[in-house]
Nucleic acid binder design. Structure first.
Length: 262
DNA sequence: AATCCACACAACCGCCTTGTT
DNA sequence: CAACAAGGCGGTTGTGTGGAT
């Protein structure tokens, strides 16, 4: 079977690796004429020496007009952390709540930024300790950045406008019940009990999750203190050395000084 | 100036699901 | 209902780039 496959590949001399400008142009023009979908047909008829899969990926992750480029905003980062805590590595599902962002981009963000922090602390990124750390230190900081940006650009319309709404302090709210900022979430952040929310690209995620409820009052003192960021000059790290030490120590206590990742 | 290293991101691979015949 | 093809998804790898040494 695999040899047959290989022979097929050779027969059509399928190209691999980075896409050229010419290939991009061909793909864009073909989709402009015939629309998306039927990727294998597209690959055969467009003149591209690529697999249908490759064409699909290139279009969805890079060429599609509504693909957003550039750094993730604090709002987007916050959403990624929040949704990942609920759904785990369901990147495409998470991406549905970040218009213009692809699952690939979100996955890369998680691996390069978030998991990097876990590695530095020598903690499993999926551990409850690390999740707590995200909630106590990182997410409040993002909230802080969001409010700072908000207050400094009152006259400047937000590119991703978040509709004003009534504050939701209902404890049954998915975010408030599972996120428990600053509290120990090790008991109630289980992936087994993910909220069954119907994701929709048209639904405002902040509205859906009641994220407006996460004002400073909702964040515990320790978290807001950290978020206030005494001493954080530029926002490079996600937490200070003190915070990292605290997380690490907590982890040591919980694991009895044992099981660190290498 | 050269080399090394870490990072970010694009692209590929394999598996699974879904739709069609 | 089975077989097959296509699409979708998550994990992994490859590569270009910028900073550090």
């Amino acid at each position: 079977m695999s040899s047959k496959k290989g022979a097929k590949c050779e027969e059509f001399e399928l190209r691999r690796g980075p896409w050229t400008l010419e290939e991009d142009t061909m793909l864009i023009h073909y989709i402009a004429r015939h629309g998306e979908g039927r990727w294998n047909l597209l690959a055969r008829c467009s003149g591209l020496k690529r697999t249908g899969k490759s064409c699909r990926l290139r279009w969805l992750n890079y060429l599609k007009p509504d693909v957003k480029r550039g750094n993730l905003s604090p709002e987007e980062q916050f959403l990624i952390l929040e949704l990942h805590s609920k759904w785990g590595n369901r990147w495409s599902r998470i991406a549905q709540f970040l218009p213009g962002r692809t699952d690939n981009e979100i996955k890369n963000y998680w691996r390069t930024r978030v998991q990097k922090q876990a590695r530095q602390l020598k903690i499993d990124a999926n551990s409850s300790i690390f999740r707590d750390a995200l909630r106590c230190y990182w997410m409040p900081r993002l909230l802080d950045q969001m409010s700072l940006a908000d207050s400094s650009s009152n006259s400047n319309p937000n590119p991703n406008p978040i509709p004003q709404q009534v504050h939701n302090t209902d404890s049954s709210d998915p975010v408030m019940s599972t996120s428990c900022y600053g509290q120990s979430s090790s008991t109630n952040c289980s992936m087994d009990r993910l909220p069954e929310l119907a994701p929709s690209p048209y639904e405002d995620p902040f509205l859906a999750y009641g994220l407006d409820a996460l004002d400073s009052a909702a964040v515990p003192a320790v978290a807001t203190d950290c978020a206030a960021g005494g001493g954080g000059s530029d926002w490079e790290g996600l937490w200070s050395m003190d915070e990292a030490w605290h997380v690490r120590k907590q982890h040591e206590e919980e694991c009895g000084g044992g099981i660190f990742l290498q």
